[in-house]
């Protein structure tokens, strides 16, 4: 028996109001006609128009998306490999160091990661630009991917892989035909996580970006430091809208696939006639 007391209803209402009101206010004020962001002067889409003509922002957005797609794709491959090594790899030299290096970046303050990578890039004489940001983002997001994928690898039945090997497939075939389809949802969510982390990152990108490549968060940060601006409100609204649509779609898709999986299990358990 679950009871919904007035206390629970109140705490949920207040809690979600706290989580969502600031963003709702931001979205509302992005349609404000006034340049003064705190005074409401009627509805207008003026700031969206100005944003679309701001070439610096558009360029930064393009760099950010490019970096996010490349780094999250490499991170997904490396992270999946790392997860496979951690869960299925057995013993090898330096295994403890390896798992330490997978978990450490997750708790490492961003300022330290950024500083250390910058000092490395300067030390080896690598010019800062898109490449250095991609290297930096790949490194920390592969660790997140590996954590997501290894939790899935741990929970799945190893005998399936063994059966494939017994039936004559090579380890690579067993991975491609048996393991990969099973861990695919985790690999996809790992990619999405890596992509979002890369889009979102300000601190590490600030250390590793050069004058030739500025990402959107760096651009937003330097604009916002001077105060609230209606153009940034408009930009934020667009980003919030994209994320909301993405998350709702993803949750609907996963809900449907879990329903289908339930149906399939039920169908399989039904005695054949």
């Amino acid at each position: 028996m679950k009871r919904m007391t007035w206390f629970n209803v109140t705490s949920l209402t207040l809690g979600f109001a706290f989580l969502y009101l600031p963003m709702i206010i931001l979205v509302i004020y992005s349609f404000n006609a006034s340049k003064l962001v705190t005074v409401w002067a009627g509805f207008s889409t003026r700031w969206y128009g100005e944003l679309l003509q701001n070439e610096a922002f558009l360029n930064a957005a393009w760099v950010t998306i490019k970096v996010a797609v490349i780094s999250s794709s490499i991170a997904t491959v490396l992270g999946t490999m790392a997860a496979y090594v951690l869960v299925r790899g057995g013993r090898f030299m330096g295994r403890t160091l390896f798992s330490g290096m997978i978990y450490a970046p997750l708790v490492m303050p961003e300022v330290i990661t950024g500083l250390s990578l910058l000092l490395l890039f300067i030390g080896i004489g690598l010019d800062r630009g898109v490449l250095t940001i991609v290297l930096a983002h790949t490194t920390f997001s592969m660790c997140y991917v590996s954590v997501v994928v290894s939790s899935r690898l741990v929970s799945f039945d190893r005998s399936l892989e063994e059966a494939a090997l017994d039936l004559g497939s090579s380890p690579w075939e067993a991975f491609r035909l048996v393991t990969l389809p099973i861990i695919a949802p985790a690999v996809i969510s790992g990619w999405l996580l890596a992509f979002t982390l890369s889009l979102d990152d300000l601190v590490i990108a600030s250390f590793t970006a050069g004058p030739s490549a500025t990402t959107l968060p760096i651009k937003i940060f330097s604009a916002v430091r001077l105060g609230v601006s209606p153009e940034i409100n408009a930009l934020s609204t667009i980003m919030i809208a994209i994320v909301t649509v993405g998350v709702i779609t993803a949750s609907l898709v996963s809900k449907r696939s879990s329903l289908r999986a339930q149906e399939e299990t039920r169908a399989a358990e039904r005695p054949t006639t």
Binding site: I25, L26, Y29, T38, D200, F221, S236, G246, V247
Partner: peptide
Amino acid sequence: MLVILPFWTSFLIRVYAWMGILSNEGL
């Protein structure tokens, strides 16, 4: 999903949202 959704939204934007609310002329 409602708890996780803000996590996917840009950290920078979530902090920025408070600048307008908390300022002297803010809401």
